[in-house]
Design a protein around this nucleic acid. Structure first.
Length: 314
DNA sequence: TTATGTGTTGAG
DNA sequence: TCAACACATAAG
């Protein structure tokens, strides 16, 4: 009897939807996430989202619109509040009714509407009296929901080996990166592989077959790879970089650079982590609040390419 | 048939 | 106010 009760309660638990770690976010039976906010004893439904974080951000936007900038949000204050640039997103929120904002969130059109609003400000000079300043401000602005498909997450780089650019029509993806960034789930996927699209720096989309070659026990990009090698004039020693957009779309990017191009380790690092860097008159770069007075880059192994060495002074 | 979102309830 | 659960309704 006890065993039966136990198994019944286990079954009940397995049917139980996972709770969200975010405020205003509720699980949906289909694995998606709903966002809701309460006002005047009534629930306001903010829509359903694929990612828990997206729902949490929708809640944050609604919460700021409903309760003001001082409201408690899911993402920490440093993360959220600076994004609320008073020159446009806050203005955008203020210039729309709560119902309109909710409607945008539910239709997933918030990003587009805000973008159009920013464009309008941009064209109108944003009332700043200084067109350039307004343009700069608008361009620099980052909001909660959008821009993720423009912002890229750096995944890894690989120095192309002679066989990668040879006649084998394949590039070996180092195991640790393959399993981390391009996981193959089903046994069928493991055998046949999957088609992956990558966008290059010119916006051209490249489609490769990505699969696991059991014979060599390696993960490879193949079918279409030779064409990429030819068009990019890729040579052994050149660096191939993989990136992914951090938006919902999770667009993949591929780019390469010649081996002889001197890479500024600082510039690379800075663009990866999107920090502000400032080159001073004496050539010293100020990064993370410290002066970096000497830098060097080197190839550390065949798979991972550049390592930054720097001497710093405070 | 599946996904969405409302009704309702109980906890804090 | 909030989250959890049940379930009616809308959408495809």
């Amino acid at each position: 009897m006890d065993v039966m009760n136990e198994s019944t309660s286990e079954a009940a638990n397995s049917n139980k939807l996972p709770s969200s770690r975010y405020k205003g976010v509720v699980p949906q039976p289909n694995g998606r996430w709903g966002a809701q906010i309460y006002e005047k004893h009534q629930r306001v439904w903010l829509g359903t989202f694929n990612a828990e974080e997206e729902a949490a951000k929708a809640y944050d936007i609604a919460s700021i619109r409903f309760r003001g900038l001082e409201t408690l949000t899911n993402f920490n204050q440093n993360q959220v509040k600076p994004y609320m640039d008073p020159d446009n997103e806050t203005l955008f929120l203020q210039s729309h009714s709560k119902a309109e904002i909710v409607d945008m969130l539910r239709k997933h059109s918030y990003t587009k509407e805000l973008e159009m609003y920013k464009l309008k400000l941009f064209n109108a000079g944003a009332g700043a009296g200084d067109g350039d300043a307004a343009r700069k401000r608008t361009k620099c602005h980052v909001n909660l929901m959008d821009g993720y498909d423009d912002q890229r997450e750096w995944l890894f780089e690989k120095v192309a080996t002679p066989s990668d650019v040879g006649r084998l029509n394949r590039m070996v993806i180092p195991k640790q990166h393959a399993e981390k960034h391009f996981p193959l789930h089903l046994s069928e996927e493991l055998c046949k592989g999957v088609l992956l699209n990558f966008e290059d720096g010119e916006g051209k989309v490249w489609r490769f077959r990505y699969c696991y070659w059991s014979s060599s026990q390696s993960y490879v990009l193949t079918k279409g790879w030779t064409r990429f090698v030819k068009e990019k004039k890729l040579k052994a020693g050149d660096v191939v970089r993989f990136e992914r957009s951090i938006g919902e779309e999770k667009k993949m990017f591929i780019d390469c650079r010649p081996r002889n191009v001197e890479v500024s380790g600082l510039g690379e690092m800075a663009s990866r982590v999107e920090v502000e860097e400032r080159v001073q008159d004496d050539g010293v770069v100020r990064l993370f609040g410290v002066n970096i007075v000497e830098t060097r880059t080197c190839i550390v192994d065949n798979n991972m390419c550049w390592r930054l060495g720097a001497r710093i002074s405070s």
